[in-house]
Amino acid sequence: MIAMIKRNLLLYFRDRSGVFFSLLGALISFILYLVFLKQNMLTSWHQVPNARLLLDSWLIGGTLAITGMTTTLTSLSLMVTDKVDHIAEDLGLTDAGPLRLFGSYLCSAAVIGFLMQLAMFGIMWGGFYVTDGLTLSLTEIRNTLGLMVVSSILATAVNASFIRAIHSVNSLNKLETIIGTAAGFLVGTYIPIGLLPGFAQNLVKFIPGSYVAALYREFLMGSKLTAAFGGDSTALASFDQLMGIRLKWTNLLTPQATYHIMGLMLIGAVILALGPEWIQIRHRRRVIRER
């Protein structure tokens, strides 16, 4: 299994242009924001103190969530190309077994998702440190790093349940385009969730990435928000809801509740991703035993 994970990682990182474009896919929202949206949003936030730094952290949160989704998908696409190129048949001849092979695709995707989020985090924080003097506390960094791990695992599981249904490179490319395009809207990175119409707001709540983005924002902006809003908790709560820093079910979710929801989504995704594989393996075993 380790050999297989090593192979998947080597294949991902040796393809330099692939890594570059994968990063660019995530960076594009960051660049678009800087070029088109930042000034516009700053104007509408003029009454919020420290608006510039808050906005920077807000963007980092959303972009990291997108990065997790898109890079794990790119990595998992190896599963499809291996099948298409008959490499999967050759791998099946080894002693590794189908579950372990599947597991190694998931592990390498999660590792790649984490590393790419880390790289994006470095790039964005570095950029904002230079332009706006953005600083982060140790706790904020620690929470963010921890969330990167959870985010890449969750995104891997969710993407793995999609990718099972894909059997050609053509449809894989289309899925990648769709997810890459939709992700920015679905997790509320381009437009704050509170400004979306009611239906879209509900749709956002079905997307695991939204919870990841919300938690990132909470971790990165929490202390700055408390400082900015002083004791005005109603104003803070409505700002949290508007910007998707905390999602609302019946009440605004606490970080713990958000983590719980993410945990349930992870379990659901793992069942969807692994279930069919497991049933297939059992079926095959029974067929062989019957002979």
């Binding site: 192979r7 294949l11 190129d85």
Partner: peptide
């Protein structure tokens, strides 16, 4: 196998 089943990039 008839076609290549090893990784071109490795």
């Amino acid at each position: 196998f008839q076609g290549s089943v090893l990784d071109a990039m490795l």
